[in-house]
Design a protein around this nucleic acid. Structure first.
Lengths: 110, 110
DNA sequence: TTTATATATTGCAATATTACGATTAATATT
DNA sequence: AATATTAATCGTAATATTGCAATATATAAA
């Protein structure tokens, strides 16, 4: 039904999935990489940088903001976005914990 | 249109998004965690472990297999799945590279 | 106050994802 | 061979995502 049954999973599993989902689109990956690259914050430059329409970029920014990974502040008519360092670090810990699971040593499993 | 315009992004960005996407559902997170926990491989136990129907689990396994993160081998009537250690490590490098980007030090960006 | 500029929101069409019942396929057991 | 067991596939319904044109909003400039 296109609907994840979140109630049958742990909070941690759902959290990992939520973070992963937001990275699951190249436009959002691109936006984040750009915000990391440009030390100072960017705004509608992203629309030019990435080749998508303004409403589309705005929507992707909204999702990133909603998860707390970026923050934006109004600067005149434009809005300045940047990485939310604190939340990024927290998210990173969660994801690293998942990615760094120990791989069983049994040469070949089955 | 519900269709990611992959051609406007770098191969690396698309790769990150593809990996992230597969982690973007708690059932697949759960499957992977279970495969990491149970040293020996599991098969239809996942159907019992996780509360989803057999075809649903089978579908999630297919996606994980398609990305190369797990491998399965037939054992009689059942199929034994396990982490593909080599590919997991490769994926991890790609994702770590993305997650570990240096956060600009400028106290507060905007 | 009018006009320009930048971003957000709305509405909608196209496509993707999730879930599962029904069925199929493949091997084991009797 | 007939039956049981296990997993994959098919078909389909419900929902989510993506992208953009049109529009709204908010501030700046004239």
């Amino acid at each position: 039904m296109g609907l994840a049954k979140t109630e049958m999973f742990t909070g941690q599993q759902n959290e990992i999935a939520l973070f992963a989902k937001v990275f699951g689109h190249p436009a959002r990956v691109s936006i984040l990489q750009h915000l990391f690259k440009i030390n100072s914050c960017v705004c509608g430059d992203l629309v030019n940088e990435i080749g998508l329409a303004q409403p589309t970029i705005s929507q992707h920014l909204k999702e990133l903001k909603h998860l707390g990974l970026i923050k934006g502040s109004v600067e005149g008519t434009s809005v300045c976005y940047c990485i939310n360092a604190e939340n990024w670090t927290k998210m990173k810990e969660t994801m690293l914990n998942f990615l760094n699971q120990d791989i069983p040593q049994t040469k070949d499993c089955c």
